[in-house]
Nucleic acid binder design. Structure first.
Lengths: 135, 135
DNA sequence: GCAAACTATACCGTTAGAGTATAGATTAAT
DNA sequence: ATTAATCTATACTCTAACGGTATAGTTTGC
């Protein structure tokens, strides 16, 4: 029931990139040092953000990373899903095989957890990085 | 970001025990069969519920398990915490070592996640097993 | 005292998490 | 064209957690 380390790093990566001037790009090395993330691990982790279209990468000399869109349009949920995949707080909400034992309809546990998950998703989706930076 | 299998089993164990007549007790075998939980695993898992004061156990012949209190007074949160310990959606909310890199005050990520965690805890604590059963 | 139940430990196999390593591709500057 | 800085791809390692099983022990009712 915990976001993993890569997700936490990713929050900080995106937050840092959000603080850059428009057009400015940062190297992996810079980000790693600033945010105290192991360099190699950052390089691996940031790939998910690139693939998800949150971060843009520039190769070669003078290369680096920058946000692919406005911080206002990136939410915590976007980052979580980029790194960990869809938010599912219980197995039975992922694989239906796991649920509905001897209940004809979805069991009460299932339904209530579904509601809680929806709330969680709504909350994560309700915070963008422009707001975060402003606080 | 997912509740584990033991927690899910525990929800169903408590839900089943909630459905029993007052004073009635169920053996591990019965619960295991009804809820399709591996017997040995159930015996191990249910210990957390006993230790947390959610379930009472009766040893010896005619022994078994029953709720230690009214279903109305047991929430999803109680069960989650009994099995997994305190809810912490991010490392930085558990060990402060992990947070506050070069921020003087707690970083914005920290603060927002703290709020989301509080919501989650409130939601989990807002559903008791009497309600669940009634649905 | 025996059998049916729970209790306590410890063990096992698999998977995910966190991080490292190595080789390759791209680009700018020279 | 060469070189050096940079990202990309893949694969590897180590550890801990997860999910489950096993064995031996204790309690209790008959």
């Amino acid at each position: 029931m915990q976001l993993n380390q890569a997700t936490d790093y990713s929050f900080r990566i995106v937050l840092y990139l959000s603080s850059l001037a428009p057009g400015e790009i940062a190297t992996a090395k810079t980000i790693a040092q600033r945010e105290e993330i192991p360099m190699r691990y950052l390089l691996k982790t940031i790939r998910s953000l690139v693939k998800a279209g949150i971060v843009r990468s520039y190769r070669g000399m003078e290369g680096g990373f920058a946000l692919a869109k406005n911080p206002k349009d990136i939410t915590l949920l976007d980052v979580v899903e980029a790194v960990e995949g869809p938010v599912r707080i219980n197995r039975c909400l992922k694989d239906h095989e796991y649920c509905t034992k001897h209940w004809v309809k979805p069991c009460p546990v299932h339904r209530v957890l579904g509601g809680i998950q929806a709330t969680l998703i709504r909350e994560l989706g309700g915070h963008n990085f422009a707001d975060l930076l402003a606080r």
